[in-house]
Design a protein around this nucleic acid. Sequence first.
DNA 1: CCCACCCCTGAATCGTCGTTCACTCGTTCC
DNA 2: GGAACGAGTGAACGACGATTCAGGGGTGGG
Lengths: 216, 216
Amino acid sequence: MPYRRTERVVRRLAAREQAILEAARALAVAYGMAAVQIAAVAKHAGIAAGTVYRYFPSKADLIADLIAALAAREIEAMRKAADTAPGPLSALAASIGTFAARALATRKLAWAAIAEPVDADIDALRLDFRQSLAAELETRIRAAIAGGHLPDQDARVSAPAVIGALTEGLIGPLAPTYDEPAAAREAVQLATLLALRALGVVDARARGLVVQVTLP
Amino acid sequence: MPYRRTERVVRRLAAREQAILEAARALAVAYGMAAVQIAAVAKHAGIAAGTVYRYFPSKADLIADLIAALAAREIEAMRKAADTAPGPLSALAASIGTFAARALATRKLAWAAIAEPVDADIDALRLDFRQSLAAELETRIRAAIAGGHLPDQDARVSAPAVIGALTEGLIGPLAPTYDEPAAAREAVQLATLLALRALGVVDARARGLVVQVTLP
DNA sequence: CCCACCCCTGAATCGTCGTTCACTCGTTCC
DNA sequence: GGAACGAGTGAACGACGATTCAGGGGTGGG
């Protein structure tokens, strides 16, 4: 038995992989996707550049993992919020509100993961993220249409349109910045309202669809 | 009098500058922003790479000119459409419809100019484009609010949100493709409808706000 | 026709990363 | 203790693409 990975070593390796991902995340949060460079990530994680390649075959794989984790968490949150809602329409509202609130809370990271310009091969990964976001919304929109809560429409267009509206309106470079938490909460509610109106909900507020979203 | 630029030479120089811009535009239309490389532009324009630098101090300047021209034309078209409308609300509808129709007609170019990934210094130029688009819409939205045609709202959010919705819903990578001209026209109308609803217009179609947009 | 002088050329240069690899270090096991 | 082997290092490499520049070719004025 020439060599075997001790439990301790296995743990250290796993911890280091997490540290690399965490470093990448931290850089994206602080400076955007462009700052997520192998040398910078390695330095931030306290290791050498070459070591990163013992954990990830390429930078694209690293970022794929980063975005996949992010996407899973976001979709999960949207789903959870929607599934505890009483009906299809409030499920849709909860899904949209959750996305908006969480995106604004991690603004720079969300923008980096959804729309910040980067090179083409990484852009493809982000497309998956947007795709799954759109798919999640599309399902909810279809359900609401089926339930007669929304006017008939092409959900393949509406879903990405809603994502685009929330993205540009809340976290894009043209969106205002909100210093006060109360202002941010209000912005989220107004954006949610706008998105619901776009889908054909006439008086969402009056019907109590736009509610306070609690963040973890 | 040692040397003087002949009229003929001046014309040739101007023509060449236009040829460079046109080559850049053609490449963006056909293959996206990433394909707008100095070597490729030069080849397409029938000149050497170095020559490009006799007309533009840097690639960023070249693309700035390209986008500025595009922006001017788009804003002009939106303004014209809006100014011939009978009231503030139909002006807003015309503006939105015009943007949507023109963006879909030059889909790849529009995406390249608005959102396709490129490097950071060029991204700043695109921000100007989006900024001016948003400003144009914002003015129209404020006018419609002032006229009592829209519910009160933060136009600084609504304007970029509308642009985001149209961009993602119509020309983004997740948007469906429309082969038939009729299908494209319908998509433009539905997207315009969605945008107007987002702003708080309840029954735009019934009120005849969404009209056929004629392209040049 | 000739002298300046500008315009054009395109190969070479430069900068920026992602990626590799020969080597050192630390761990495991006997 | 020491042989065996994976993990970690970081300088070097390579690809890509913007930018430069020394030299050739026209063009204008006399």
